[in-house]
């Protein structure tokens, strides 16, 4: 374990071991904070802070942004728990990738699509996904994983329709990945 071979990135962990580890982190989140983990909520907080910075009256009058900024701008969305949690996530993932020799500037794509189109597809996917996550009140982390473990009805409905839609559109997007 003396010399981490940078040229040969280490293999990923066994999925069941990694999954059990993730489950224990989620359990710890419940025990310490009373709620689970999340991700897309941080985007809502960051966007609300941005709108508040540019157009405070507009932000506070809007019930979506206003829920984060407060009706008088008294709340600080950027110091919300979820924003700090995602900041930790980014730092943890970067450290983990670097330590395993996996940190590399690259574009993940299948052989049937160029870098430019892949970046556009990723941006479009993120935009679409944001709508789904906000309509559902959470994403795979905050609703699927967290709500799934808490046996929330809505979480299991979300997981079911998410996987169904994924399998339904995958053949149409095959060239992006295979």
């Amino acid at each position: 374990m003396s010399d981490p071979a940078r040229a040969a990135p280490r293999a990923y962990a066994n999925p069941y071991v990694a999954g059990a580890g993730l489950g224990l982190v989620l359990l710890a989140a419940f025990l310490v904070t009373g709620h689970g983990l999340g991700a897309s909520g941080a985007a809502a907080a960051v966007v609300s802070a941005g709108v508040e910075a540019v157009a405070p009256t507009h932000a506070r009058a809007n019930p979506f942004f206003g829920a984060w900024t407060g009706a008088d701008g008294g709340r600080a969305p950027l110091s919300d728990w979820i924003v700090l949690e995602v900041a930790g996530l980014i730092a943890g993932a970067a450290l983990s990738a670097w330590a395993a020799g996996r940190w590399q500037r690259r574009v993940d794509r299948g052989p049937g699509i160029g870098d430019r189109r892949r970046l556009l597809a990723a941006f479009a996917g993120g935009t679409v996904m944001a709508f789904g996550a906000r309509l559902a009140r959470g994403c795979t982390s905050g609703l699927g994983l967290t709500g799934g473990a808490a046996l929330s009805v809505g979480a299991w409905v979300f997981l079911l329709t998410l996987f169904a839609a994924g399998y339904a559109v995958a053949p149409l997007l095959r060239r992006s990945w295979r």
């Binding site: 983990l37 999340g38 991700a39 897309s40 985007a43 996530l89 993940d108 597809a121 990723a122 941006f123 479009a124 996917g125 993120g126 935009t127 679409v128 996904m129 944001a130 709508f131 789904g132 996550a133 906000r134 309509l135 559902a136 009140r137 994403c139 795979t140 982390s141 609703l143 809505g154 409905v157 979300f158 997981l159 079911l160 329709t161 998410l162 996987f163 169904a164 839609a165 994924g166 339904a168 559109v169 995958a170 997007l173 992006s176 990945w177």
Partner: peptide
């Protein structure tokens, strides 16, 4: 909204390649 949100999210997942946390 959670059923429809899941459908929209699933499309975005395969198009984008990741979910928000990943």
């Amino acid at each position: 909204p959670q059923a429809v949100g899941g459908l929209i999210f699933g499309v975005g997942f395969v198009l984008g390649g990741y979910c928000p946390g990943t």
